[in-house]
Design a protein around this nucleic acid. Sequence first.
DNA 1: AACCATCTTTGATTTAAATCAAAAAAACAG
DNA 2: CTGTTTTTTTGATTTAAATCAAAGATGGTT
Lengths: 204, 204
Amino acid sequence: MYDTLLRRLNQLVLLTPPQQRSLCKALQVVEHPKDEVLLEAGQVSNHIYFMTEGILRASHQHEEKDVTRWFCFEGHFAAAHFSFVYRQPSEDRLVLVTDSKLLALSHTALQQLSDQDPVWIDLNRHLLEHYYTTSLERVLDFQTRSAPERYQRLLEARPDIETKVPLGHLASFLGMSQETLSRLRRKRKKQQQVPKNAKPNSKN
Amino acid sequence: MYDTLLRRLNQLVLLTPPQQRSLCKALQVVEHPKDEVLLEAGQVSNHIYFMTEGILRASHQHEEKDVTRWFCFEGHFAAAHFSFVYRQPSEDRLVLVTDSKLLALSHTALQQLSDQDPVWIDLNRHLLEHYYTTSLERVLDFQTRSAPERYQRLLEARPDIETKVPLGHLASFLGMSQETLSRLRRKRKKQQQVPKNAKPNSKN
DNA sequence: AACCATCTTTGATTTAAATCAAAAAAACAG
DNA sequence: CTGTTTTTTTGATTTAAATCAAAGATGGTT
């Protein structure tokens, strides 16, 4: 049940068996269908989630339009971070893109863990650093890459995203219109159809 | 000497006088002229800087072009964060935009402080959270705003940036070409020339 | 299966911004 | 101050991507 989580965490810090146990005790296992809202905009977030299975997205309302600020995939942590830490209303909704299984850690539970053992603070910092780095990289992508390049890079990082996430959400995540993304897809398909000089000249 | 720093830190955590003193002892005061390179790309960063006076930028080489990933202004902290924390070669150079006065905290000094007193870990986390939030906001700007809007927002946040930072660096920071930014400036000037219906019709 | 709603594709057109090329302005060095 | 280099502005042109409008496709529901 907690394998994916513990495997992931051991990449960041070494956890003793008792530490692992006390973490697992603090977690709630939850399962939700597609489109379920885990946090409404305006609410204060009380949980950090670990995605055991499925995909989650942070959705932001900007001038009538729904913008996906980020996705969270299997093996990663999701939170309305600022809201969770500073107990402020969240600007984003957290919505499930697919049927999902998650582990939820409440604010109070994390507090208690952190009071007991500094390893949890350390872990928290590692995660924060990781997601911060990701965000910085993403800014660089916007600064230096065109729409097709950004899509290309996303696919390299997450080839499965194409089939699992609706195009509209992907487009807003990448900062382009739906139509543009749809056209990029078509171009890519065409190029794949003649993958490796199968027939140098089709007229032959 | 350390006033700006301590004022800033007290916004984040409460520091006792002894804590303040041990921090100041750990800091080196440095002063550098414009264009000085504080960290070369490829080197491992050994310092976090606090800008007492001046502006610093993180410059990234992308296909022959120099991209400014971020600026650091008076009253803020600058670091090649990933390099500093994980002892890896930095992908960015840190260069001073103007003559500057800084406080430098070495990796070992921070280590020692953190071992002595958890308040420094806590502080570190606060800063990380702050800069992470900033980065997320910046991504949102790229997702949802046009070039003029991004420039507009930057000016609202930092009106002084216009005069202090060369246009080329600003343009790459905003993810647009120099020419585009130059044209945005012209437009803004024109609009300011007739600020508030000074003369409804100049022919009168 | 037939219907409805939502999502995706496609085409035509407009708009935003990049690129290319060169002039003007500013900063700097001797 | 003068010449030199770098930065900024400007104009013309091209390219990328948004928008508008509509048609197809897909998925779920009864």
